[in-house]
Nucleic acid binder design. Sequence first.
RNA 1: GGCGCUAUGGUGCAACGGUUAGCACGCGGCCCUUUCAAGGCCGAAAUACGGGUUCGAUUCCCGUUAGCGCUACCA
Length: 493
Amino acid sequence: MNAANKPRVRFAPSPTGYLHVGGARTALFNWLFARHEGGTLLLRIEDTDAERNRPELLDGILAGLKWLGIEWDEGPYFQSQRLEMYHAAAERLLASGAGFACYCKASVYAGADAAPADEQEGEGDGEGPKAKRNIACPCRDLVEAERAARERDGTPRAIRFRAPRTGVTSFEDAVFGRREVQNEEIEDFVLLRSNGVPTYQLSVVVDDIDMRITHVIRGADHLSNTPKQALLYRALGAEPPIFAHVPLILGPDRTRLSKRHGATSVSSYAEEGFLPEAFRNFLALLGWSPGGNSEFLRTTEIVERFTLEGVSRTNAVFDRPKLEWFNTEYLQKPPVEDLLPYVQAELERAGLWNGSQASADPIWFAHAVDLIRPRTRLLGDFTGWARAFFNDDFDYEAEARAKFWKDDRLPALLAKLADGLAAISDWNHDACDAALRGLVAAEGVKAGLLINAARVALVGRAVAPPLFETMVVLGKDRVVARLRRALPVIAPN
RNA sequence: GGCGCUAUGGUGCAACGGUUAGCACGCGGCCCUUUCAAGGCCGAAAUACGGGUUCGAUUCCCGUUAGCGCUACCA
């Protein structure tokens, strides 16, 4: 099998907003499919709608894809630069009779679903007027003389597709199976607007033919429009590709995910400190399953196992707690080396990287991250509660002080502990442990008292890694200094 | 209103005619423990409803209900 037989898929966002979760999942599935099959992923920007189009948003979409680790092989192509192709296709359809010129006013069709709503609401007569649809446009039967007359008047002209009035149209969907619809349900949809701008239906089909797309993987909201496109393909002399409609992503209230539901842009998750691979894993399992019970799947494994057959037909609710769980898994399970670049970026973002031991000593950095990561949930934790591991400038958390610095004996005890630790020549876990145990034995206090108080003195937090491991990572000088530095702060109590 | 799609615990998935209906998140409890996590164990929690088909339905068919989608000279 050569490259020519490999699948070609595309992700085709329109720059009318940021890259949202639903789009990201569509992009991901396309990417996974392409990689699994050894195929090609193209990126196409659907920017024909000059009104809603916001070119400046494109960078954000590309950045979102980049963060997700989704790389395309061709493009980006811009539909706004391919307008002649759509015009030519529309003219060809007009010439072949598959399309026809329509001189109706746009307003005749606009808001078609607003009209039928009267329904007197009487006491349950239940016999309201049936909604009427303009299935067939009257212009489809215009005789040549009439047409010429309108043309002479300069009446604005759109081009519509002459939908068949009988029979059925079918197409193959890898997720939903073979679909068939009655042609009488298909209206004479517009191909080219009277202002010369192509509709989605036209441009998407022309492009997918021209770009030799073999599999159209997109949201299930397009399922109902697909018959029109199948018709268009054939009218344009091409065989429709295989479609794969993926179920929609819903908010917790089971309505389509939208801004109302809070964070829906990919970039917001990046900023919040999620790891791209965790996000990918989570997203992949929203509407897809490898079968069986495995859930923690590294990206390479997902690529290996991804098939369209595994895609679900039911909409899925975006569950934030589960996303967070995936993030903790990816913060903890992979080799620590995988995590380092992300932690470094987080430290840089917080201004804690330059001049730090983390930047000067890679081995130390890996150790520190390894010690901290079991307790992290988001990348921000490394510069949040774990800040003291990377910088000497940190605060003593109020709750921690209240909880572990209550005892009056503490200043004296910690001073002695500092002295004892200062005397250690071979700084390691057991030596620190022994120094502290010896002191509590001599003083007749519980080890916990000193351990907890010392932890607060060293990292400013009640919630932190085990004390002696922390001491090893911090090093003798810092530990002794921090202990002594804390004494006057404790004393006032 | 019309057309279509879908329907397993609260959520995401598994079981593609035969299981005590499985896993995970979340939730509750216990254990571990020097804080907090992690980890281990236990628990509550589901096949929307009604008909068929079948020796046998979560699984196949029909209906009902519900949710969602489409029904634009938006994409």
